[in-house]
Design a protein around this nucleic acid. Structure first.
Length: 466
RNA sequence: GGUGCGGUAGCCAAGUGGUAAGGCCAGGGUCUGCAAAACCCUUAUUCGUCGGUUCGAUCCCGACCCGCACCUCCA
């Protein structure tokens, strides 16, 4: 079966191939850098990473653009409160964001672009819309005239046709022809940042940056546009109106949206005290890869309920995979190949591929891996696993890790080098042999203190990082 | 009210018209100088409720109940 994704536009799972058959042109809505990213934001970025990685695993190239929104109401408010420039607010959080996604092992898109560095592109897009009569001015600001775009609502599947101006328009929306019209360019306000342009001094509306930057780097029709589900309306609907209003061509072939994350069954909020950043979680002893696993293991179109228990379970699931990998690397197996294992490995690999192809069904894909792990452990215990089966088993783990990327531990800064660990392990074993158990146990405790766990097996002692 | 999503074991969660993957927890084992770690086994006659179609439905249809999200800034 081929690669396929659920497309919000068509409301069904559609076969996916990039338009040129080779490079996937994708745009994802990035962060607004006025604060640290929270765990909900990171769920969406993790999803985008899984999407990107699987596309690449399937042999396509990616031209992946992510925007950094570095001008908007919240940023401006923050800058004014602190009496500093926009950059003084945005740059530190931009840096923090990049650090966060790096520690979550989220691959950097090919291009990261800042809104404030694309004002001319936005202006020219607005001028293009104006030339087509799709804009109007009110109170010095420029608005999009939705009545000129009959397809409005096609993404969110809302019928706005019956919405007649004045029928249900809020009193404070008097300056717009239609309640759904949205601002493209905001007139300069005293004390707020603005850009002098041919359409007046002012600043961009929320939606225009994405249309302008996406088309600049990816062309008029993208293969994929992705983001959080809440962006479907109005943000992405408005992007379509802006882009297609000018080009007359489909803006994106696939719209892929990630469901939200809840915390303890409810909405995450600062007032409830369940608002987490990655830094918070790492600060209380969780690993970034456990967070990554938890965020990635639930298929992206499902709501994900984030709990501390779930995070612990995620860490343990990773342990199981790492233990299996360690066993493959350190156990000694008899020569030859066990055909049954070979077949199971091939089946698991095929199931993994099929599950990922099927709209990134990560839960199903992981199920295939774990099933193989359990079956193989049983056969190993019985001595039926052969040296000739190691490669196929490692290949399955590697394939899993191309997407999930959780096998390698994040090393603590004060952890020991491998060689130092080996020396201490050898010393302990020598003490054991001499039946000096007090010394052996103290060495074991010393290593444990450094996060190194020893495993005494029939074939000797092996160790791993916890 | 409109739009969309979902209700599967203690928790997370996959899934199919033919009788329930997987992970965590829990209980029981194996191993071991003691441990630890690791590994294995067991754990839903049942898939929100009620009808219908069918030889047969958790999966198809209808009704209903419950939860959530969006419709205003939001990943």
């Amino acid at each position: 079966m081929s690669l396929r994704f659920y497309n919000t536009l068509t409301q069904q799972v559609d076969d996916f191939v990039p338009a040129d058959g080779k490079t996937v042109r994708m745009y994802v809505c990035g962060p607004t850098v006025y604060n640290f990213a929270h765990i909900g934001n990171l769920r969406t970025f993790t999803f985008q990473d899984i999407l990107r990685r699987w596309i690449r695993a399937r042999g396509f190239e990616t031209l992946h653009v992510m925007n950094i929104t570095d001008v908007d109401d919240k940023i401006i408010r923050s800058a004014m409160q602190q009496n500093v420039t926009l950059e003084a607010v945005t740059r530190p959080f931009e840096t923090a964001f990049l650090e966060d996604i790096a520690s979550l092992r989220i691959q950097r898109p090919e291009k990261l672009v800042r809104a404030t560095e694309h004002i001319p592109e936005m202006v020219s897009l607005i001028e293009g819309l104006a030339a087509k009569g799709m804009t109007y001015e009110s109170d010095g600001s420029i608005y999009y005239r939705i009545s000129k775009f009959p397809d409005y609502g096609k993404l969110s599947h809302n019928d706005f046709g019956g919405m007649i101006a004045g029928a249900r328009v809020d009193v404070d929306e008097y300056d717009k022809e239609n309640a759904r019209d949205f601002v493209l360019w905001k007139q300069k306000k005293e004390g707020e940042p603005s850009w002098p342009t041919s359409i007046g001094d002012g600043r961009p509306g929320w939606h225009i940056e994405c249309s302008a930057m996406a088309m600049k780097y990816l062309g008029e029709t993208l293969d994929i546009h992705a983001g959080g589900i809440d962006l479907t309306f109005p943000h992405h609907e408005n992007e379509i109106a802006q882009s297609e209003g000018v080009t007359g061509k489909p803006f994106a072939r696939f719209w892929i949206h990630a469901e939200h994350l809840a915390v303890d069954g409810g909405k995450m909020s600062k007032s409830l005290g369940n608002f987490y950043t990655l830094r918070d979680l790492v600060g209380i002893g969780h690993t970034p890869e456990a967070v990554r696993y938890l965020l990635a293991a639930v298929p992206y179109r499902n709501k994900l309920n984030f709990t501390m228990d779930g995070l612990k379970a995620a860490a343990l699931s990773i342990e199981r995979l790492r233990n299996f990998e360690l066993r493959l690397k350190t156990d000694r197996f008899a020569e030859g190949v066990n055909d049954d294992i070979a077949k199971r490995a091939a089946d698991a690999f095929a199931q993994f591929e099929a599950a990922m192809d099927d709209d990134l069904n990560t839960a199903n894909a992981l199920g295939a891996v774990f099933e193989f792990v359990r079956e193989t452990n049983t056969i190993m215990d019985a001595g039926g696993f052969k040296a000739g089966n190691v490669d196929a088993a490692m290949k399955l783990l590697a394939r899993m890790d191309v997407v999930f990327d959780v096998l390698k531990p994040t090393l603590a800064e004060d952890s020991l080098e491998d060689s130092a660990v080996d020396e201490l392990v050898a010393a302990r074993n020598a003490a054991k042999k001499a039946r000096n158990f007090a010394l052996a146990d103290s060495l074991r405790a010393e290593l444990l203190d450094k996060g190194i766990v020893l495993e005494d097996t029939k074939e000797g002692t092996r160790w791993k990082r916890k």
